[in-house]
Structure formats: C-alpha cells, structure tokens
C-alpha cells in the first residue's frame, strides 16, 4: 500500500500547559513494496509517526493517506479495524504483550478478533510459525515458558497471522544477542521479499538501515531532517553529526582511510571482504605512484 504524509503535525495535550508538538509539518511518501527505515533520536517523533500508521493517532493538522484510508484531523476513521488488518505493528518488546495460555492461542488471537474463520486461522498458524522459525512442538506450550527470543517470535507471528500488507517494526531486535538480531532482521527481509510487503523499520541502527532499507527518512525534533537512499544519506556525515547521529561504522572508517592515505575509495554497499580488498589494492597501487 502506498503511504503518504502531507504536512502532518501532531500535538499532545493541545491548549494546556503540557502542550507538546511531537510532529511538525511532516511530509513524505512511501511506495508500496518498499523497505523504509525511519531513524532519529529518542524524542524525534518516531513513535508518534508510527502510531499514525494504524490509526492509533489522528493528525492534529495535515493528512495521512494509507492505501485507501485517509486520516484527517476532523473526521474519525470509520473502518479503522480494516486499516489495522492491513497494517501490522510490531511494537518494542512485543513479548510483553503475550497473554494467552498457549502459543497457538496467542498467535490466533488477532485474526480471531478480526472474525477470521477457524480453518483459515489454523492454516495461517502453520504458515507464520514457519516464517518466524518456531518449531511446531511449541504450539501447545505456554508462551511464558519460552526463552526471550522465542517469546518475541511468538509475538511477531501473532502480527503476521493477521496477514498484513504493511509491516511496521519498532526496534525489533532490542535486547537480543548478536545472532538473534541478525536472524530476526534476515527473517523480516525474507518476509518483505516473499510477501511483497511494505516494510517500515524504526531503528537506531545505521548498520541495519544501510543493510536492509531502500529508503531512509531521518527525523529530528518532529520534522523531516533528511531523506534518500541509504548511501545518499549516510555519506552526508556533517549533516548527520549536527543532529548527533552517527554514520555506519564502515563508512566512517573508510573516510578515515581516505584521509590518512590520501586515496579515494567509493563505498557502494560492497561486502566487507570486497572493501578490504579495495583498500589493500589502493595502498599497493599508491606505492608505485
């Protein structure tokens, strides 16, 4: 589904001493089927933005368009349940929201709530546990007996079971160990490709944004600070540093190599092996000059 924000502002507790402007005149477009990373510091407005995507919040000003759904300041969305079927949100630490007696019931809760037939729910159940790599043997276990990583997979399976077209991920790997993080991110990427999802990743990790996203939006103080392909955005070190964001470490290091040895390296998303080779060749070449 295409998503667009047009001049969106959001104010918490307007006309009170606690008034807080979380989003300010924010505009951007997300094409159906793309993988977009939204990056910014705590307090930059990421969570507020995210809550518009499935109609938990309506803009104070401007308009949000998600497929055929329109969120506007004056009108409550009538078919908000339909929107929530299409936009699955994986919140931070989603395992905190598990509550059912068994893994199978927890995963089936969402689609059941949306009125899906038992047979359909059952069919999806097996699809989603395969997608999140949970063994069938866990289906009748209590979700609370599982490890942290497994609990998170159950929670994610519950979102996928609603068969969303848009998947919104809020720091999905926080608290996982390095292998858990990589497995989780690779899994989302596969789902993105296989199911043709529109994926929106809210993250602090420049590395993940660089590796997985095809478009990056940088937020600062509720406004759009920068936008572009990861390589576009992450080569603008100065601008990122101004809002205290770092560039991915590989780009940072290559910048230092270029300076120290007065050579030019171009980073186009190559693997680390290729980059190392390029550096070594350039250093060798430099000696003959």
């Amino acid at each position: 589904m295409d998503i667009s924000f047009k001049n969106v502002s959001y104010i918490y507790q307007p006309n009170t001493p606690f008034e807080h402007r979380a989003l300010q005149n924010l505009s951007f477009d997300i094409k159906s089927g793309s993988y977009v990373a939204i990056v910014g510091h705590t307090g930059s407005g990421k969570s507020t933005l995210l809550q518009h995507l499935n109609g938990l919040l309506r803009p104070t000003d401007g308009q949000v368009q998600i497929g055929n759904f329109t969120l506007s300041p004056d009108e409550k969305l009538k078919n908000v349940m339909d929107l929530r079927k299409k936009v699955g949100v994986v919140f931070q630490y989603p395992e905190h929201q598990l509550f059912e007696e068994t893994v199978a019931k927890d995963i089936g809760f969402g689609p059941k709530n949306f009125g899906e037939a038992e047979q359909e729910i059952n069919k999806r159940l097996y699809e989603v546990i395969e997608a999140v790599q949970l063994p069938e043997s866990l289906l009748e276990r209590s979700p609370f007996d599982l490890s942290g990583g497994q609990m998170r997979r159950v929670a994610i399976a519950g979102v996928l079971a609603m068969a969303p077209e848009v998947l919104v991920l809020d720091e999905p790997t926080a608290g996982l160990d390095p292998r858990g993080q990589k497995d989780m991110m690779d899994m989302f990427y596969q789902l993105h490709k296989q199911k043709g999802l529109t994926t929106i990743l809210v993250t602090h990790s420049m590395e993940d944004a660089l590796r997985y996203a095809d478009h990056v939006i940088i937020l600062n103080k509720g406004t759009k600070y920068m936008e572009g392909t990861p390589l576009d955005v992450f080569t603008r070190k100065q601008e990122l540093n101004e809002v205290q964001l770092d560039i991915p470490e590989i780009i940072e290091f290559l910048n230092k190599v270029e300076k120290r040895f007065a050579i030019n390296l171009s980073y186009q998303g190559q693997s680390l092996a290729e980059v190392a080779q390029q550096v070594v060749e350039k250093l060798k070449g430099k000696n003959y000059e």
Binding site: D177, R179, G180, F253, L272, A273, V275, Q277, V280
Partner: peptide
Amino acid sequence: LQSIGLDIPFVAKFADELKQLDV
C-alpha cells in the same frame, strides 16, 4: 564466537579480512 551466537566488532572483522588477504 559466532558459533555460540556472539559476534566480533567491525574493527576485528576488518582485521580478519586483512588477514585473509595476507596482510
């Protein structure tokens, strides 16, 4: 380290690639 679910930082990975290239 990777075999037990951990990883090494960027600098160590880069050093590892250099070793592969006989640096």
